[in-house]
Simulated assay, not measured.
Amino acid sequence: MLSWEDEPWLEQNSADLLDLLDRTLITVPKGLAGELAKIGAVRAEYPAFTPGDTCPDNNLLTPGGLRLIDFEAACFQSVFLTAAYCRMPFSTCWCVFRLPAGLAEKIEHAFRAEVVNAYPELADDAVWQAGTRRAIAVWTVDATLALLPRTLEDGPLHPTRRPVPTRRQLLEHRWARAGPLKASSAGRASAAAALAMSFERTNTPTG
């Protein structure tokens, strides 16, 4: 069985998204396939060992500091895919809420300070920002595949814990922050920007 770093999940996600949009009768904007292919380049950028799923409920606060307690997704992958958790926030998690002002930046700064020890070139803001935006786009596609088929009948992301966002709320939030997927080119809105507008029209939050 392939490990996560070897499995072509980024490429498969891109293909699956196009198929899902077609099956759900959401118009696939022209050029979307090419844009998805570009963000997949993040896979090979600056690999490092990571727990793979750095959500809050996969960590434990102890008197001795923070302890990671979930390693089932541990693998080598781009540091940008981990950095994206700080900004989105929490790329693959159900517990997505607004963070206190400045907290996400503080977390990302601490993570980046460690990463730069291994990859000094990531001290360049342009390199860091571009890579992290691509990673956010990668996770946005991943979330869409998980959530879109279940948004017809909206519901909370967790079966018992409250308060918690709904599937539609999270999906709209992800596309609102989709980074390079929404960037314009030569004065024209990207294909993914058009797709994001579709989600805004069809996935209006319920609360």
Rank of each mutant, 00 (worst) to 15 (best):
A194D: 06
M1T: 06
T92M: 04
E105M: 03
G102A: 06
L25F: 07
V138S: 13
T151A: 00
T160K: 12
A126Q: 14
L122K: 08
L10N: 10
N59R: 08
V96A: 14
L32M: 03
T27C: 04
E200N: 13
T166I: 00
L17V: 09
D125T: 15
S184C: 07
V115A: 12
A73K: 11
E105A: 12
S3M: 04
N203R: 10
S3Y: 04
V164T: 10
I107S: 03
I26R: 10
G131E: 10
W4I: 12
S190W: 06
A83D: 02
A15W: 03
I26N: 02
R188P: 06
A143K: 14
E72C: 12
A37D: 11
P180G: 09
D22H: 12
R43V: 01
G64V: 03
E72H: 14
L17S: 10
F97M: 09
S190L: 06
E45A: 06
A123S: 15
R112Y: 03
I26F: 08
A123T: 11
A73R: 13
F90V: 03
E121V: 09
W4Q: 12
A137P: 01
R188Q: 13
P29G: 00
L152C: 07
I39T: 04
Q12H: 14
T160M: 09
I26A: 02
A191N: 08
L10P: 06
G64P: 04
A104E: 05
L145P: 05
Q169T: 15
A183G: 08
A41T: 11
T24K: 09
R167Q: 01
D6I: 07
A123Y: 07
F76S: 07
T62E: 13
G155T: 00
R201C: 02
